[in-house]
Structures are given as structure tokens and as C-alpha cells.
């Protein structure tokens, strides 16, 4: 069963609304859709800026799930090493990995072209969102030692969705891919779900291109919102966060500015509409990728 049908089924089974009589109609509709599912696929490209390919590896680490996504929901129309396409084509969703080296004309042209060609630009990973480890670059690397200035892509183009983290997890990238599919191809109800799921990630994109452990201080602890759950410490890829007096304490010299801790914090953003439905949403995603 395809994702659209599965989602309808789960949402109607959970009794979240009194629309169960229309459920059957929707099932028929979604079944008809599945028969020509290939035509309904979205087009996705992976644009590689200055990053370590860790985000791409993370996407690939969905293993069978990735194949199912490519089989049923998305066509990969661009991607170094993965698709034999030299120039950035038109696409629905661009997954951009890495920051942009502004000393390299080719990179700058490519990120601008990505914005022109893609309906939705997703910054995948800390480098694309916030600069991450490339913030610490001072140049000097052979054979282009003059390449020293790297900017998060949001400093050059408008970005629609952020996925912070280094690397963002396979599951997180997968969830965003599935939600992007629902947003573009789903019915009204599914579009609404995808919108509410993606909204905080759009808000992060609108908010800016700087991230640090310091966000936990300035926007959570200083704001009187931290309750010491520990989510941030579990999210930190470099183990820079411990807890003092029940509150996160960061070794700021270790922080690579990936943005995972703040995004993971339940007091950075929290939607009751989305999280209260965690079972139905995860059930649908997992089910659709079987």
C-alpha cells in the first residue's frame, strides 16, 4: 500500500476525526493513484556544495528505505556520482549539502542556479544551514589555498527548509522527503499534515544562518524555558554538552555549530498537533517504506 493510502487509513483508524464515512472514498482515490504512481513521483536532486558527503551517506543509510523512496515517491534527477546529469535540471526539491565557497565562481553560480531551478530548496545538514565546520576554515588547502570563505547557502539564496545536524540522521532526512512528497502530491488533509510537520523547519530557515551551542543559552535557558531533559546532549555529534545544575553546559571550543542541539530541544519548537500524532505519523512513514 502506498503512503497516501496508508496515512488516510491510519488517521481514520485512530479516530482523530468524524470523517470515517469519507475514508472509504479516499481509499479508493488513493488506490487509483497508486496504479499510476510513477507519474506522481516528485523530482529530487542532491546538490553538493562544500561538504564532506556525510549528509549524502546519511541519506543512503536508509538502505532499503531509500530504494523504496526512489522506487515509489521520488525520481533522483541530479546528484554527483548518483545520476548521470551534468547541469542542474528543473526539479521539485533540491537537497543541498555543504556551504558555498564564495571564492569559487562555479559554486556561487551553482547555488544560484539551484534556487532558480528548484521549487523547494532544502538545506541538508549543518554546513548548508549554518556553515558548521566550514565556519572554521582559514584556507590554505591544496590545490586551491585561496578558497577560505565559506557561507551557509542561506546567505546567498532564499532557503525554504532546514535540516540541521552533523550529519542529520537518515531517519530525519527520510521524514522530510516523505513530508515533501505529501506536501506536493497529497490530498488536502495530507498537505495540512506535511505543512505542520515542515513548518518548524521552515521557521528555522527563515530565522537565520547562525547556530551554536549558545542558542541553548540565549533562547532556552536565558528565556526561562529549559527543564533539563537532556535532548541536546544526546543530539550533539561531538559530545560537547554535559549538564550542570540540571542544565546543559557546552564546551564551546568543541562546538562545531551544526545546530542539532537547539533543533532537538523540545523547548525550541514544539507542535502539539504534530507530536501528539506521533504514532500515526511514524506508523505511516515506516509502513510506506516496507
Amino acid at each position: 500500500m502506498g503512503l497516501l493510502g496508508l496515512l488516510s487509513k491510519l488517521f481514520h483508524k485512530s479516530g482523530s476525526s468524524a470523517k470515517s464515512d469519507t475514508g472509504a472514498v479516499k481509499m479508493v482515490e488513493s488506490k487509483r493513484k497508486e496504479e499510476k504512481s510513477v507519474a506522481d513521483k516528485i523530482t529530487v536532486g542532491h546538490v553538493h556544495m562544500s561538504g564532506c558527503t556525510g549528509c549524502l551517506v546519511s541519506l543512503a543509510d536508509n538502505y532499503g528505505g531509500l530504494l523504496t523512496i526512489l522506487d515509489r515517491y521520488a525520481d533522483l534527477v541530479y546528484g554527483l556520482t548518483l545520476a548521470d546529469v551534468r547541469h542542474i535540471p528543473k526539479m521539485d526539491v533540491a537537497l543541498v549539502e555543504g556551504s558555498c565557497c564564495i571564492n569559487d565562481k562555479c559554486s556561487v553560480d551553482e547555488i544560484k542556479e539551484t534556487r532558480e531551478k528548484a521549487a523547494v530548496v532544502v538545506a541538508v545538514g549543518g554546513c548548508a544551514c549554518y556553515g558548521n565546520i566550514t565556519r572554521f576554515c582559514r584556507g590554505g588547502q591544496q590545490n586551491q589555498p585561496q578558497h577560505e570563505s565559506f557561507l551557509p547557502i542561506g546567505d546567498l539564496i532564499k532557503v525554504d527548509v532546514y535540516i540541521p545536524g552533523c550529519a542529520p540522521t537518515p531517519q530525519m532526512i527520510r521524514n522530510v522527503c516523505v513530508m515533501a512528497y505529501l506536501l506536493l502530491k497529497g490530498n488536502a488533509e495530507q498537505k495540512a499534515l506535511a505543512t505542520s510537520y515542515l513548518k518548524p523547519l521552515m521557521d528555522l530557515a527563515a530565522k537565520g544562518t547562525e547556530a551554536c551551542f549558545c542558542n541553548l543559552m540565549t533562547e532556552v535557558i536565558n528565556q526561562g524555558l529549559c527543564m533539563g531533559c537532556g535532548s541536546c546532549a544526546a543530539a550533539c555529534p561531538v559530545r560537547a554538552i554535559t549538564h550542570e545544575y540540571g542544565k546543559p553546559q557546552g564546551q564551546r571550543d568543541l562546538c562545531i555549530k551544526c545546530g542539532a542541539c537547539y533543533a532537538q530541544c523540545p523547548r525550541s519548537f514544539y507542535s502539539f498537533d504534530v507530536v501528539n500524532n506521533y504514532e500515526a505519523i511514524l506508523g505511516a512513514i515506516n509502513g510506506a517504506l516496507q
Partner: peptide
């Protein structure tokens, strides 16, 4: 609040790989 953190993390596992 920790249960909320867990469920948010299951839906948005930014840094919780394979968790």
C-alpha cells in the same frame, strides 16, 4: 516533558541517529 522530548525526537531525530 521528557516524554515530549522523546516523541519530538522520534519525529524529528536531528541528532539521534538510529534511535
Amino acid at each position: 516533558c521528557q516524554m515530549q522530548a522523546i516523541r519530538k525526537g522520534m519525529l524529528y531525530p536531528f541528532g539521534w541517529r538510529d534511535v
